[in-house]
Design a binder for these strands. Structure first.
Length: 798
RNA sequence: GCCCGGGUGGCGAAAUGGUAGACGCAGGGGACUUAAAAUCCCCUGGGGGCAACCCCAUGCAGGUUCGACUCCUGCCCCGGGCACCA
């Protein structure tokens, strides 16, 4: 479209979309989730996301804000690296090529991007500060090392990311079960912030769906930690949400990796226990967690005392108990827990019912009273929870406890394509942070970036790179050869955008104070739990370390919906992925933008069908005609009806747009245009007054920015339409003078009577009763009740 | 299994507890045209009736209410998230 190219050039030349951040009087930071620059280019889902966010930004601008709308590229990580491996290219060469394409596409769809603030996470000037973030956490004791399980494909002989494991098998070798290997890795202690991450959720202006996902991910459970003691005096704490059922705990189950297993195992069981533990350790992390599998386990030969009954119960180990949740040990109450029941039946272990009820076992209902529970018999379950916990606590065998599902964040990746973790190991000093003056630790250039069977990063093969002196003592040291998780790159990028020009700080104090936290963040719920959680966490830590004034990065977050194609999810395997380019070429950006926004509610997504696009083109054509029928003189008389419609439209659209109800906003604009076109030919013959058309063009501008600019210019304006102000509505002028009074008899509509607005109750009722059809229904019956709703309806109840 | 969404014409959808189907697509009829495209006008949930009108209809079954797509209870189906989490 010639018009679109013209305005994109003008915006560029005039700096229309590039506000001076330091001079902004009313800053509004409008953020969208930066894309991973894949080789395929933007797909329609990205485009949908960006356009919705862009419309929001453009609306805010018309409402008088100085809007900063930056974009960047999340170009490190496994996706890029795997693709590079597949096509046998170096990511270093591949990524810039993809970025060029993305930039073109982003311009093409007419985003209000401030290109001077573009960033890429792979740029050393960016990842220098990603490493800096790591160092801040390291220095403050938030980063630590421990052995963690990684996925290992025996065929690829390499570490796999979780995304590469499909139902326990390697995605490239579907015959090969993935196993686990234990490696020393870096973790961020996000669990220290778990309460704040959870509690703050309530205060955030975020989509409910996103907050719910985060809350579930954090997974708070209230319960108790109870202690079973072995004959030799070892204490085995277990976490349970059902301390009320303690009297029914007929055995214990420990995770196979539990540290007490050795001490507990009886001589005659040592053989089977050792074998079982080896077997489990070979299973991969993912397969271990896939439910519905038959449970396995072995008896240790050891016993521990149930703190409530005083009886010694057998201690088993089984794969259904996980070391990394709770205490890695459970008390099994087979009568009231399905998993324990299944295991007890399988292993022929005793089952004791302790909640009264005649349902078949197991039943887990908390509605009931206790039985077989000593002094607590007859007490309601919910009531007994606290009592039993306290009773055990008095003897030092229990305490109330809260557990969270959230784990610490493993940030080590045994890969090439990421920022090297800025640590140097020294025999004398241990792990030492790279001094900040030495940042960035550049990712060394190498052709040999394939992962291999060593279990460590390809960087571990570059001796000249990793051999460095210890920054503390000068002795021989060795760099950390793992790179960091891509999610660390994206956990702070919004802090960098305003400050991209600053080489000596990650983010400038004054600019950050002026522009952050982010006013509006729009993105997909697929990032609800990882990216959004990590970004909140990093922000909180940097706040606590004194680098930021705020602890929550995104004041408002809205999750957009998903675009499906003719009812089905888009995927490469289905071959139904919509590539935006062809549509942009055929219809232009404005028509395409409006089509996507008209599909359905933005926060719910929509169903993409080619047939619908033409409707938006027709609408723009109609607007075009209206603009060209506009009289600059403004002498024609205007029917009240049209003025009323204008003000109703302004009111409706002004309510819809900030709430992201773009589909209904567009529908209202269409109705208004239809009304303009229905004006008497005589009135149109004198031209439609500009006062009726200009507000329309302004309201359309967020949706169809190029088109609106062209219309605005043709209406005689020199400046960009985005210098205009969003129209205000006059409530008086928007008022209807005629209404349709609905008359119901027993709640069924029997008549619609034209009446003037403000008709008093008595008159409305008289009118209603006089109606012929209504009379037929009230007939001889006595009217028992009359409901009157002003300017709406009369309901006669007989 | 648990936690979120959602279920309305041929299709995408709209409706502060108050006229169900706005807006758009598709379809039908007509105008303009030598013709087609484009454009414009009219019709378009189902059924009955010459008509005025009437009956039915928002996944299913109940309930609350003068009145329910909207609120409540139970169930069915679709989409998403979590998942031996104790």
């Amino acid at each position: 479209m010639a018009i679109e190219a013209k305005w994109q050039e003008r915006w560029e030349a005039r700096g229309t979309n590039a506000p001076d951040l330091t001079r902004a009087a009313k800053p509004y930071y409008n953020l969208m989730m930066f894309p991973y620059p894949s080789a395929e280019g933007l797909h329609v889902g990205n485009v949908f996301a960006f356009i919705g966010a862009d419309i929001h930004g453009r609306f805010r601008r018309l409402a008088g804000h100085d809007v900063f709308e930056p974009i960047g590229f999340d170009a490190f990580g496994i996706h890029s690296e795997n693709y590079a491996l597949k096509v046998n290219m170096h990511p270093e060469a591949l990524i810039p090529r993809n970025i060029v394409r993305f930039r073109d596409q982003l311009r093409r769809i007419g985003l209000m991007v401030h290109w001077k603030h573009e960033l890429s996470t792979t740029d050393p000037a960016y990842y220098k500060w990603t490493q800096w973030v790591f160092l801040q956490l390291f220095k403050a004791g938030h980063a630590y090392r421990k052995a963690g399980a990684v996925n290992w494909c025996p065929d690829c002989k390499t570490v796999l990311a979780n995304e590469q494991v499909v139902d326990g098998f390697c995605e490239r070798h579907p015959e090969t079960p993935v196993t686990q290997r234990w490696l020393e890795q870096w973790f961020f202690a996000i669990t220290r912030y778990v309460e704040r991450l959870l509690d703050n959720l309530e205060k955030l202006d975020w989509s409910d769906s996103t907050r719910t996902l985060q809350a579930n991910w954090i997974g708070r459970s209230d319960g108790a930690e109870l202690v079973f003691v072995t004959p030799t005096g070892d204490r085995i704490p277990v976490f349970t949400t059902r301390p009320d059922t303690i009297f029914g705990a007929t055995f214990l189950v420990l995770a196979p990796e539990h540290p007490l297993v050795d001490a507990l195992t009886a001589a005659e069981q040592r053989e089977v226990v050792t074998q079982y533990r080896r077997k489990v350790s070979e299973m991969d992390v993912v397969a271990r967690r896939v439910g519905a599998r038959e449970k396995t386990g072995v008896f240790t030969g050891g016993y521990a005392r149930n703190p409530a009954t005083g009886e010694n119960v057998p201690v088993w180990i089984a794969d259904y108990v996980l070391m990394d949740y709770g205490t890695g040990a459970i008390m099994a109450v087979p009568a009231h827990d399905e998993r324990d029941y299944e295991f007890a039946r399988l292993m022929r272990l005793p089952i004791t019912q302790v909640v009264a009820g005649d349902q078949p076992l197991p039943f887990t209902s908390r509605q009931g009273t206790l039985t077989n529970s000593g002094a607590f018999d007859g007490m309601r379950c919910d009531e007994s929870i606290g009592k039993i916990s306290d009773w055990l606590a008095e003897r030092g065998l229990g305490k109330r406890q809260v557990q969270f599902r959230l784990h610490d964040w493993c940030i080590s990746r045994q890969r090439y394509w990421g920022p090297p973790i800025p640590i140097i190991y020294c025999d004398a000093c241990g792990p030492v942070g790279v001094p900040e003056k030495d940042l960035p630790v550049l990712l060394p250039e190498t052709e040999d970036f394939r992962p291999d069977d060593s279990g460590v990063s390809p960087l571990a093969r570059i001796e000249s790179w990793y051999r460095v002196p210890c920054p503390q003592c000068g002795a021989e040291g060795r760099r950390e050869t793992d790179v960091s998780d891509t999610f660390l790159d994206s956990a702070w990028y919004f802090l960098r955008y305003p400050s991209t020009a600053f080489a000596d700080v990650p983010f400038d104090r004054a600019l950050t104070r002026q522009w952050l936290p982010v006013n509006s963040y729009i993105g997909g719920n697929e990032h609800a739990v990882l990216h959004l959680m990590y970004a909140r966490y990093i922000t909180m830590v940097l706040h606590d370390l004194g680098h930021l004034d705020f602890e929550e990065p995104f004041t408002r977050f809205r999750a957009h919906g998903m675009i499906v194609k003719e009812g089905a999810k888009m995927s490469k395997s289905r071959g139904n992925v919509v590539v935006p380019d062809q549509y942009l070429a055929k219809w232009g950006a404005d028509t395409f933008r409006m089509y996507l926004m008209f599909l359905g509610p933005y926060q719910e997504g929509g169903d993409f069908r080619d047939e619908g696009i033409v409707g938006q083109r027709r609408f723009l054509d109609k607007v075009w005609d209206v603009v060209h029928a506009t009289s600059m003189a403004g002498r024609a008389s205007v029917p009240d009806r049209v003025v009323r419609k204008l003000h109703q439209t302004i009111r409706g659209v002004s309510e819809d747009v900030p709430e992201l109800r773009y589909n209904t906003a567009l529908a209202k604009l269409m109705e208004y245009v239809n009304a303009l076109r229905k004006m008497e030919p005589g009135q149109k013959g004198h031209g439609i007054p500009a006062s009726l058309v200009e507000p329309l063009v302004v309201m359309l501008a967020p949706f169809a920015p190029h088109f609106a600019e062209e219309c605005w210019e043709r209406l005689g304006h020199q400046a960009t339409v985005f210098e205009a102000r969003w129209p205000a509505f006059d409530a008086e002028l928007a008022k209807e003078d005629q209404i349709e009074l609905v008359v119901q008899v027993n709640g069924k509509v029997r008549a619609r009577i034209a009446a003037s607005a403000g008709l008093p109750e008595a008159q409305a009722i008289a009118l209603a009763r006089a109606d012929e059809v209504v009379r037929k229904f009230i007939d001889t019956n006595e009217i028992r009740k009359i409901i009157f709703v002003q300017d709406r309806l009369v309901n006669l109840v007989v």
